[in-house]
C-alpha cells in the first residue's frame, strides 16, 4: 500500500525530531570525549533525555493515530516501528547504564548506534506508514514478545558498544599510553565487567522473548517451534550468548575473547533482527516491504 498522509500521521515528525536530537547527542558525546570536555558530554545526556521523551510522545501519538485510522494496534509491528522502538530502548538502556556507572564516555559509542538506527528507519522504513495488521499478529502476546526481545537487543547493543571500548582500552593499556582519548575510558577491567553485566540483563530478556514467541506461535498455529529462520536465528543468538556466559566462568575468557564474543553476539542479533527479513524467507512481518 502506498503511504498517504492518512496512514502516516503526525507521529513521524516527532520521530524525525528524535533522529535529529540523537545526531546532536552523538556529536556532543564525541566532542565531549575527544575534546576532553565532560560538560559537553553532559549536554549530550540531556539531549538524550529529550530524545527519549520525544520518542515516547511519538510512540504514544502513533498508537493513538493508528486507532484514528481504524487500524488500532501497538506501534511495534513493522520495520519502521521496530527500528524506532529499538532506538528508544537503546536510549533508555544507555541512560540507565550511564547513571548507574557514572561515566559519560559510553554515549560516544552507544548513542551513534541509536542515531544510525533512526536514520535507517527514516530512509528505509517505508516512509513510516501505519500498516494494517494481519490477523496472526493481533494478539496480546505481541506486546510481551516484542518488548522482551527489544530490551534484550538493546542490552546486547550496549554490551557490544562497550566491548569495542574495551578492545581499544586494552590495547592502549598494553602499550602504556598515558595521553589521548582512550585514556579517559574507564579501566579495561571495569569495561570488561560492564560487557558482562549488560549481557546478563539482555540474556533473560532474550530468553523470555523467545519463550513468549513460542507461546504465541503455539496459540496462533499450534506449533511452538517450527525452525523458521527467525526462530532459528534467535536460537543462534541465544546459543552465542550462552557460550559467552559459560566461557566467562573460566578465567581464560575474560577480556579480549569475551569482548569479541559479545561483538559476534551483537552481529548475530542484527542478523536475527534485520538480516533474516532482508535475506531469508519467514513468518515475521517487518520485512520492509
Amino acid at each position: 500500500m502506498e503511504p498517504t498522509v492518512a496512514n502516516i500521521g503526525y507521529n513521524i515528525y516527532f520521530f524525525d525530531f528524535t533522529m535529529i536530537l540523537l545526531g546532536i547527542a552523538s556529536v556532543a558525546y564525541l566532542v565531549g570525549l575527544y575534546g576532553d570536555k565532560p560538560s559537553i558530554s553532559r549536554v549530550g545526556t540531556w539531549i538524550c533525555v529529550l530524545a527519549a521523551l520525544s520518542s515516547f510522545v511519538a510512540l504514544g501519538l502513533r498508537w493513538v493515530e493508528s486507532y484514528q485510522m481504524g487500524i488500532g494496534r501497538i506501534p511495534v509491528t513493522n520495520l519502521y516501528e521496530s527500528l524506532v522502538f529499538f532506538a528508544w530502548s537503546v536510549i533508555l538502556f544507555h541512560l540507565f547504564v550511564e547513571r548507574k556507572y557514572e561515566s559519560l564516555v559510553f554515549g560516544a559509542f552507544v548513542i551513534p548506534i541509536a542515531f544510525v538506527t533512526m536514520l535507517f528507519a527514516h530512509f528505509y522504513g517505508g516512509g513510516g506508514a501505519i500498516t494494517p495488521l494481519n490477523p496472526a499478529l493481533q494478539s496480546y502476546w505481541l506486546h510481551a514478545h516484542v518488548i522482551t526481545c527489544f530490551v534484550g537487543y538493546a542490552a546486547f547493543a550496549v554490551s557490544a558498544g562497550i566491548a569495542v571500548m574495551y578492545l581499544l582500552k586494552a590495547r592502549s593499556e598494553a602499550a602504556k599510553q598515558t595521553t589521548g582519548v582512550i585514556c579517559m575510558f574507564p579501566a579495561a577491567k571495569a569495561l570488561d565487567e560492564l560487557v558482562y553485566r549488560a549481557i546478563i540483563w539482555g540474556f533473560p530478556f532474550l530468553t523470555a522473548g523467545i519463550i513468549t514467541g513460542a507461546a504465541w506461535a503455539n496459540y496462533a498455529w499450534g506449533t511452538y517451534w517450527s525452525w523458521d529462520p527467525k526462530e532459528t536465528w534467535s536460537l543462534i543468538v541465544w546459543l552465542v550468548y550462552a557460550a559467552f556466559l559459560h566461557a566467562r566462568i573460566t578465567r581464560g575468557w575474560h577480556g579480549r575473547r569475551a569482548a569479541i564474543l559479545s561483538i559476534v553476539g551483537f552481529l548475530s542479533t542484527i542478523m536475527c533482527y534485520l538480516g533474516v527479513n532482508l535475506f531469508l524467507a519467514g513468518l515475521h512481518s517487518y520485512g520492509g516491504g
Binding site: 536460537l235 543462534i236 552465542v240 550462552a242 573460566t250 533474516v276 531469508l280
Partner: peptide, 23 residues
C-alpha cells in the same frame, strides 16, 4: 566446560545452514 562451549558454538553455526538452505 570446553565441550559445553564447543557444542554451543557448533549448534549455533550448524543452525545457520538450515536458514540459508530453505528447508
Amino acid at each position: 566446560l570446553k565441550l559445553a562451549i564447543t557444542v554451543l558454538i557448533l549448534l549455533a553455526s550448524a543452525s545457520i545452514f538450515g536458514t540459508v538452505i530453505e528447508q
